[in-house]
Amino acid sequence: MAEILGVAASAAQLLDGAIRLLKRVRKAYDRHQNLTEVLDQATLELESINAIVRAIVDEDALQTPAVAAELTKLYALGTKLVKCLKELDPGNKGAVRQIAHQFVHGTKEEETLADIMTDLDRAKANLSFRVQLANVGLTRMVHDTVLANVDVIDRIDRLLAEVFRERHGLKIAGLLDATVPQNDNLVFLSRAEIASLDPRTTGNTDSNITLDDKTIDRIIVGNMARGSAIQLLGPIGRDLWEDMRVRIENNTASGHAAQFAYPTDFVTFKYLLDHQERMAVLETR
């Protein structure tokens, strides 16, 4: 995750520099109407791309490997853009040299700029697609069922909807429109429903939805049981965690407390519970 954040932050920094350079070149060529129109449009486009990148920097859930791959391509294009803009920038050229530069090199550099902006527009579309398909707020469950956190999805969906100027910023948010959340504001989605969001998987009924490798489906930390308390931190009977990744750490039990922090079968649970009750009785004598 830190590596992806670094790529996003670098891309944002590069775009910031390109936008500043664009505005400087725009000012220098103020009387060159055709070029200033191109530069104005390029500035708006870069600001739009940068808004997406900034959202990625701010939201860990959007920092997926697929997004990182698009950011790497975007960074390479941004580097080409900066080089092109430096060629266009009159800088400290004298008045005569500046005019000569403009007439001799202007057309070629304008064409190069136009080509780069076309590539950037395509890169923006690819990055937007990857961001909107991010598996935000999902927790893998048993078999083909996925649990979605409505609060998380809604928050990031609103953020991206503003960036993309669309009703939904996340494709998955559209699946929640017709669902009724449970008391904990969670909804069940099928893997097939999530796969349908990506047009490349349309018609594939055997879709394999994989969550980010760094995703933790269940986090159980910092719980404490004291005295004769019974604390259940995992399922009893059927192992509902068989297809999940779980992080269990820093949980404490003291005295004769019984703490169950991992899936336990009924026989083992009953034995441990009886033992805990016997120890509690002995403690009171």
Results as ranks from 00 to 15, higher is better:
130 R>D: 06
236 I>F: 12
265 D>Q: 07
225 A>D: 01
240 L>W: 08
218 R>V: 06
115 D>G: 11
232 L>V: 04
63 Q>C: 07
263 P>Y: 05
229 A>W: 00
100 A>T: 15
49 I>A: 03
24 R>P: 02
22 L>K: 02
86 K>T: 09
184 D>P: 08
21 L>M: 09
8 A>S: 09
17 G>W: 13
159 L>M: 14
40 D>K: 11
238 R>I: 10
242 E>A: 12
28 A>R: 11
284 T>M: 01
214 K>H: 05
44 L>V: 07
180 V>I: 08
106 G>Q: 12
36 T>N: 09
4 I>M: 09
50 N>Y: 11
240 L>M: 14
260 F>E: 07
252 T>N: 07
221 V>G: 11
223 N>R: 14
98 Q>F: 04
91 G>K: 15
91 G>V: 06
244 M>V: 10
64 T>C: 07
85 L>N: 02
18 A>P: 05
107 T>A: 07
42 A>Y: 01
137 G>M: 03
17 G>C: 10
225 A>L: 00
23 K>S: 11
97 R>I: 04
143 H>T: 14
280 A>L: 03
149 N>H: 04
132 Q>W: 11
208 N>R: 03
32 H>C: 06
276 Q>N: 02
167 R>H: 13
267 V>M: 15
115 D>H: 05
53 V>Q: 01
32 H>L: 08
221 V>M: 09
273 L>D: 00
74 L>F: 13
271 Y>N: 13
120 L>H: 08
275 H>A: 05
221 V>C: 06
143 H>D: 13
39 L>S: 04
156 I>N: 00
255 G>S: 10
273 L>V: 08
114 A>P: 11
82 V>T: 14
9 A>T: 15
191 R>Y: 04
77 L>G: 11
55 A>N: 01
31 R>G: 03
128 S>T: 11
247 R>A: 15
25 V>S: 00
45 E>Y: 02
59 E>Q: 12
42 A>Q: 03
78 G>P: 14
145 T>M: 13
151 D>L: 10
1 M>P: 09
69 A>F: 12
268 T>L: 02
230 I>R: 00
6 G>D: 13
99 I>V: 07
12 A>W: 08
88 L>K: 00
140 R>V: 14
207 S>V: 14
77 L>Y: 15
32 H>V: 05
98 Q>K: 15
275 H>S: 05
246 V>H: 09
107 T>H: 06
48 S>Q: 07
